[in-house]
Simulated assay, not measured.
Amino acid sequence: MTHPVRFHPSIEQIKPDEAETIRGLEEQFDSIQETTAKDYKSGVRAVHAKAHGIAIGRLTVAAGLPPELAQGIFSHPASFDAVIRISTNAGDVLDDAIALPRGLALKVMDVAGERLPGSENETSQDFIMVNGPVFAAPNAAAFLKNLKLLSKTTDVAEGGKKLLSSVLQGVNAALSAVGYESPTIQQMGGAPQVHPLGETYYTQTPFRYGDYIAKLSLAPVAPALTSLTDVKIDVKDRPDALREDVSRDMIEHGGRWELRVQLNTDLDKMPVEDPTIEWSEEESPFVTVATLDIEPQISWQHGTSDRQDDALSFNICRGTTSHQPLGNVNRARNDTYRRSTAFRAQVNGCPMHDPRKPQDIAAE
């Protein structure tokens, strides 16, 4: 039997240039947000700017979990209010014809436990996920290089982006046909134009999982959702096609997802410091620790949802120490994400409040 690796601070390898890289990331985030603020006359996120849906649900931790899975906020059976935000990863608000990876941020509200630095006065546990198992850059320095390229395209004419996306989707489809996935091509606009509610989402980067180390995923299990897996969205002449289709299906049936954990069983095969390496599911499969249920509801209503989206923020470092983000990429994301949130709050004149209950979101 393969045993999970126990967490110890020594598993992280701090790079000597991390502070300099973080400053570079902050500069690029600032550049993207300053550009988009001028264009939209309001502040939007430096990444995942466009939301396709916001929905409130309930996360229920499974009973009878084995000791290695009964960790952190999943240490005992419990039920929490939760909210999800579905998005696209660009820092500008684009026509949905431009095919980019989808994101899903999950906020679990009012959790107990010792807090991570910077979130001592908050009570949520945030998990930020993307519909692919690996990150596009092996470290923060490479992430900075990618971000510099994306920053240069932030204010480029949308027509050119649509044309490039169309070409890259064809390239990505050809690569996928021979069993190769390119996160880089997908980030540039070649991602499959699939329905967000049918996708499985991954943290991509590793986290502490109580005494252990893990990655997490959120997978659709309700038949109404799994029937949408790999279903292509018709985006022709529909700039907000994803928002419209997500809204329709949320109203019709809501959904159920499973939150799953993949424990690290070998630090050589499952490195903490390189999120481009996929952890083998044969070595360590994802195992369900909780279910997320979302009742049928309106997931986007112009006016109300826009205000809620402006007031919400998600950060991988908002949570308990038992789910501490690990690795160079995660360490670089903490300060940059908080900086992005502060920029939005300042530009929009809308202070960020970490919600303790669903009513706090509805009241925004």
Rank of each mutant, 00 (worst) to 15 (best):
R6H: 11
E18H: 14
A19F: 04
K38F: 10
D39T: 08
K50D: 13
A51F: 08
G53E: 07
I54H: 04
I54P: 01
A55L: 06
A55W: 06
A55D: 10
L59Q: 01
L59P: 01
P66D: 09
E68D: 11
L69H: 09
Q71F: 04
Q71W: 06
H76A: 14
S79N: 12
F80Q: 01
I86Y: 07
S87L: 05
D95H: 13
A97E: 13
I98H: 04
I98F: 07
L100F: 10
V108I: 15
A112C: 10
G113I: 00
R115E: 09
P117L: 15
G118Q: 07
E120L: 11
T123A: 13
M129F: 01
V130E: 11
P133G: 01
F135E: 09
A140H: 00
A142D: 11
F143N: 12
L144I: 09
L149P: 01
E158Y: 06
K161Y: 07
K162G: 05
G170F: 01
A173H: 10
A177M: 07
Y180S: 00
G189I: 08
G190K: 00
Q193M: 15
E199T: 06
Q204V: 05
F207C: 10
F207P: 03
Y212K: 05
Y212V: 07
Y212W: 13
A214H: 05
L216C: 10
L218G: 09
A222F: 11
D234H: 12
V235R: 12
V235D: 00
K236I: 13
D237H: 15
R238C: 08
P239W: 02
A241F: 04
L242W: 00
R243C: 09
R248I: 07
D249H: 14
I251A: 15
G254V: 02
R260F: 05
D266H: 03
K269M: 09
P271C: 08
D274W: 10
P275G: 04
L292S: 01
E295W: 04
Q297Y: 02
S299D: 04
R307P: 08
N315K: 01
T320C: 04
N328G: 02
V329R: 10
N330H: 03
N330F: 02
R331Q: 08
N334I: 13
N334K: 00
T336Q: 15
Y337S: 11
S340C: 04
A342P: 00
A342E: 10
N348P: 00
P355S: 03
A362S: 08
